[in-house]
Amino acid sequence: MTDDLAPLPARPEKPPRRRGPLIATVLLLLGVGVVLFVTLGDAALVFYEVDEAVEKRDELVEKRFRVVGTPLPGIVETRIGGESTVVFTFCAGGVYADVAHAGDPAELFQPGVPVVLQGEWVAGSLVEIDSLEHSANDGWFLLTDHMVVKHDNDYRTDKDRVTDVASCALKE
C-alpha cells in the first residue's frame, strides 16, 4: 500500500520541439503549391503561333491569349487613346496578322526578332494599319498590352544566322 501511495517519479521532460524548421518546411510546401497554382492558371492562357491564332479566330474572339510570331519591317509608332502604341504586322508559318501593341515595347523589339504578345482579337481596322508595308488588312487586328522577346539560341556570327532571323519561315 505504501508503495502505491508513494509519489510517482517525475516524468522525463520532453525535449523542446524545434518549430523553426517545421514552419520552414510548411512554408516551402505552400510555396510549391502557390507556384503550381499560378503556373497552371497561367498555362490556361494558351500560347498560339500567329497562323494558329488566325485559323482559330472564331473560337478566340473575346478571349485573352498569348501569341508568338515575328514582327515584319515597317513598324509604325503612334498614340491611341493617349497611350503610346506600336502598330505592325506579325507573322508565323507564312500567315500575317496586324497588331496594335499598347504601351512601351520591349527594348529588343525589332523586325525579325520573335516576340510573345498577350491580348485579344478586335474586329475592325486602324488608320495606321493601312500604311503598313506587309499589312494583313483582313478586318481584324490583335490588341495587345504585354510583350516579351522570344530570343533564339544562336550565338554564331555568320551570315546564315542573320538570314534566319529576318525570315518568316513557312511551315514545312
Binding site: P73, Q110, V162
Partner: peptide, 19 residues
C-alpha cells in the same frame, strides 16, 4: 557583345552586353 546588323533595316540587333 552579341551584336549583328539587321539585313533589311541595317539596325544593330542582339543581346548586346547582356550576353
Amino acid at each position: 557583345p552579341d551584336v549583328r546588323l539587321h539585313p533589311t533595316t541595317g539596325e544593330e540587333i542582339g543581346q548586346f552586353d547582356a550576353v
